[in-house]
Design a protein around this nucleic acid. Structure first.
Length: 875
RNA sequence: GGGCGGCUAGCUCAGUUGGUUAGAGCGUUACAUUGACAUUGUAAAGGUCACAGGUUCGACUCCUGUGCCGCCCACCA
């Protein structure tokens, strides 16, 4: 074994180790050396193929890898299935942008086929980059099962599901108001729309001099398409007009306006009258349906005014708005012009303002009943009927899907209950093309192209979330009846950021309950967003982006993983900054150096490892280690990554390194040391796989990756040893503080054996003490009262003792210290006294607490006395 | 408009059914350093637990209200 360098150097080991893992084949559950009965599976949320890995991905990869490695070591059949998402709009937008920059061309210049070839070229490059970045994070996923949302098996599954839903009457085509992005030239789903508060001009005006009252709007240009004016039925001002129709001239365009009553109208807002524009407002469209109003389209797909509106035709929306406002002003029709704040709808991909407009689109009906296809949802039998909404709610309400943190349950229900039909068609080119073909008046829907000549496929593609909604089972081979599907579905955990709860998680539940009549996953773990040290979102414009790979290069992957997994809680945003990662880098180095020490002590020993704990310190560390195994295991079972890591970190540093290792220097038991440390390596492996794997060859055969997860054993738990060691530790601490004044419990006789004499110098470091205490142990003396052997050292029994070191006390400093201590002790004594003199406390509090207080009173009294005595003796 | 989360040391955060004198990491200060580890060690300083009421013998913890910060949903014609 080559000598280990003084500091851990991640750069030199990471690639080498990942290759070793990958070559071993153990990422693939079929090849695991131990084939347990339990199954654990995660299907990786597929990163977009648009670009590079960001911190959100890094969190996802770190947490999932922790779970996966833990379960693999436990012996479960453990599958982590990786993949990538074609991210239709996002990718197309990116390629369009590149095309524009490089060649100054638009997608229309190239045409569908050539453009798609460009996209494919782009994707084949970025996909490789992303896959390597996933590797760099140490992700132990099974690359042999890798999937892509747009590869052939997934595409076939998508078409199959489309046909199923179409046959069940859940998919329909219809004209509806959709969210239209004029830049992308496509529809957007409701939740793909973002809002930004902005200042807008709010005009109060009359359509014409012939119209009896005024209305108000921020969008005068859409008023060209008004077909009605709605008022509240209870509004006295307008009651007399309800039902009448006005034919008027509005800025040169003739309108026919019916006055209708609608309870949705707020009489207090604006003038209490609303110009109804069915074609360009979601609410107005519904009003038009209720009142049978005609629909007049004003804005076209490019965001311009359509033909037939006189001088305004061909103008952009913004131009027309100004022109109309000017014209109204000229005609003296404007009554008021104010600045108000309103929400502007924007495309979440490109930030362009959304135009609501009616368009022929494909929808999924979420309220239509269909025959359930499986028995996986509690309370809903196969063959009985339910709607998509009902099933998706039932899967969570029945407790089959658990969401962590559970406060997101409410959010989920609220969203699901208010879900409207889902518009699944997009007018972009990159994606799954709608599997519908037309020939004359004939229409064909199917998983494959129809036979015969002359069929033309629908131009639209499907919303990217349609295919990602099927992700948990299409990746496992569905619709084929594969053994993977049988073994690993439903998956165990779905781990992702809370920001895509609606986009993705809800859609997966919706689609899976439909297609399989089953749940997609048993547990959902939502992590928070990663923010900068000031809590701001990371963004290019702020320049505060931390690149996970750059950082991993600087501090090591293990440090990055630790900084993302520790000190965080599910669903809460976390802050990340250099110092934090550097802290964890120091910690990986600490683990490394503990290992280095252990290796040095044990490298020449050829003796068999016999783990035998004899001294108090040895029994203590074994018992503690055993306790930590139990705690860490149970935290990992509950996805409490932070707690698991924090406990391990505290144990490793404060107990294992600072105490056990130091004592081992004087009382060596190196086989125990090595055994205990190897357990520590195992426990740490899921969190920091690289450094632990690098050290592992010194402690065990094979790869740590598949080493057996340690089990807590009752027989190793030794509460007495823990208590004794606490005591021993307090003695050492006291000696360190130059005041070996510890009171010994009368029942317990303790011997501190000091071989070496005290050095004549001020002693305040732990290693100094250890050096001076050649051998430290606690012995229990039989009750017979036989005196322990005094020749070996000094007896402490039932009285104060002063070690020789006490002679070195700095009197002034000591006095100061003692006075301070006395003050605090007396203060606390008063607190207890006060508490006990309170009748309500002694009468109402549980007996054990009152008794505890009484006991405390006694010990505190003694403590005060003792400090007083010490003070006296010093003076 | 409806809802959710947060407010604990200078900073980042723990605090598990209400019960010792509220904890950790980082930072700060002092001291130490031929050591497995200067990526270290030992200590110290640092808190009206946002505020106001209430319940209780007892509240960081439970209830009500207020304030500030952040987020989500709906929507403003």
């Amino acid at each position: 074994m080559p000598e280990l360098p003084k500091a851990y150097n991640p750069k030199e080991v990471e690639d080498k180790i990942y290759q070793k893992w990958e070559k071993s084949g153990y990422f693939n559950p079929d090849k695991l050396p131990r084939q347990g009965r339990d199954v654990f599976s995660i299907v990786m949320p597929p990163p977009n193929v648009t670009g590079t890995l960001h911190l959100g991905h890094a969190v996802m990869l770190a947490l999932e890898d922790i779970l996966i490695r833990y379960h693999r070591m436990k012996g479960d059949k453990t599958l982590w299935l990786p993949g990538t998402d074609h991210a239709a709009i996002a990718t197309q937008t990116k390629v369009e942008k590149l095309l524009k920059e490089k060649e100054g061309k638009s997608r229309h210049d190239l045409g569908r086929e050539k453009f798609l070839a460009e996209v494919e070229k782009f994707v084949s490059e970025t996909k490789g980059v992303i896959k390597n970045q996933i590797r760099k994070m140490g992700s132990s996923c099974d690359w042999s099962r890798e999937a892509y949302t747009l590869d052939e098996p997934r595409s076939f599954a998508v078409r199959t599901v489309f046909k199923m839903m179409h046959d069940d009457g859940l998919i329909y085509r219809g004209e509806r108001i959709v969210n239209w992005c004029p830049r992308c030239g496509s529809t957007l789903a409701d939740d793909e729309v973002e809002y930004r508060t902005q200042k807008a001009k709010f005009y109060t005006f009359r359509y014409s001099k012939d119209f009896p009252f005024a209305i108000a709007t921020t969008r005068p240009e859409t008023k060209l398409g008004d077909t009605a004016v709605a008022v509240n039925p209870k509004d006295e001002r307008y009651k007399k007009y309800i039902g009448k129709t006005f034919e008027i001239d509005f800025v040169g365009v003739s309108l026919k306006l019916k006055i209708i009553a609608d309870r949705a109208i707020d009489a207090a807002f604006g003038t209490g009258a609303l110009g109804v524009t069915p074609a360009h407002s979601m609410a107005d469209w519904q009003m038009a349906e209720r009142n049978n109003l005609p629909v007049v389209k004003v804005v076209d797909e490019q965001g311009k005014i359509r033909q037939g509106f006189g001088a305004y035709s061909g103008k952009t929306v913004a131009e027309a708005r100004n022109l109309i406002a000017e014209k109204l002003k000229e005609d003296g029709l404007i009554e008021k012009e104010e600045e108000i704040e309103n929400n502007l709808s924007l495309c979440y991909r490109c930030g362009t303002p959304i135009e609501p407009l009616p368009s022929l689109q494909w929808f999924i009906d979420v309220n239509k009943k269909f025959k359930i296809k499986g028995n996986g949802i509690k309370g809903y039998k196969k063959g009985s009927e339910a709607t998509l909404k009902e099933l998706a709610i039932a899967a969570v309400k029945g407790g089959q899907i658990k969401i962590l943190p559970d406060r997101f349950l409410k959010v989920y229900y609220h969203w699901m209950e208010n879900l409207r039909d889902w518009c699944i068609s997009r007018q972009i080119w990159f994606g799954h093309r709608v599997p519908v073909w037309y020939k004359g008046k004939e229409t064909y829907v199917g998983a494959g192209r129809p036979e015969g000549e002359g069929w033309k496929q629908d131009e639209d593609t499907l919303d990217t979330w349609f295919s990602s909604g099927l992700w948990t089972f299409t990746t496992l081979g569905w619709p084929e009846k594969t053994s993977d599907f049988k073994t690993y579905h439903p998956t165990s955990v779905l781990e992702t950021g809370y920001d895509i709860l609606f986009f993705w998680i809800a859609r997966m539940i919706l689609m899976t309950t439909y297609v399989l009549g089953d749940i997609p996953f048993k547990n959902v773990y939502l992590h928070g967003m990663v923010r900068d040290e000031k809590g701001r979102k990371m963004s290019k414009s702020l320049g505060n982006i931390i690149d996970p790979l750059e950082t991993a290069d600087k501090y090591g992957t293990d440090a990055v993983r630790l900084s993302l997994a520790l000190g965080t809680s599910p669903g809460s945003d976390m802050r990340l900054y250099d110092e934090k990662i550097a802290g964890f880098r120091n910690f990986t180095n600490k683990i490394w150096n503990i290992g280095r020490y252990v290796v040095e002590k044990t490298k020449d020993k050829k003796t068999k490892i016999k783990v035998k704990a004899e001294t108090v310190a040895e029994r203590w560390i074994l018992s503690r280690l055993n306790g930590v195994i139990g705690e860490v295991t149970s935290h990992l079972e509950n996805c409490e990554f932070s707690q698991a890591g924090e406990k391990l970190r505290a144990f490793s540093w404060d107990e294992f390194a600072d105490w056990y290792l130091e004592i081992n220097k004087i009382q060596p038991n190196n086989s125990l040391l090595a055994a205990a440390y190897s357990v520590l390596l195992k426990l740490w492996h899921p969190f920091m796989p690289y450094v632990t794997e690098e050290l592992w060859p010194n402690f065990g055969g094979g790869l740590l990756l598949v080493a057996e997860w340690p089990k807590a054993e009752k027989k190793l738990s030794d509460k007495k040893a823990e208590k004794d060691f606490e005591f021993l530790r307090s003695i050492i601490t006291a000696i360190r503080g130059m005041r070996a004044d510890y009171r010994i419990e009368p029942a317990k006789k303790v011997r501190v054996v000091v071989y070496a004499g005290a050095k004549k110098k001020f002693i305040d470091s732990q290693s100094e003490i250890i050096k001076n205490l050649a051998r430290v142990e606690i012995l229990e003396v039989e009750k017979s009262g036989k005196k322990p052997d005094q020749s070996a050292g000094m007896i402490i029994s039932g009285a104060e003792i002063y070690l020789p070191l006490a002679g070195m006390i700095d009197v002034a400093k000591e006095k100061n210290q003692l006075e301070k201590e006395l003050g605090e002790a007396e203060k606390y004594l008063a607190v207890i006294k006060n508490k006990l003199s309170n009748k309500s406390f002694t009468e109402h509090a549980p007996k054990e607490i009152v008794d505890g207080e009484k006991e405390k009173l006694e010990t505190q009294k003694e403590k005060v006395e003792k400090i007083k005595n010490q003070l006296k003796s010093i003076i």
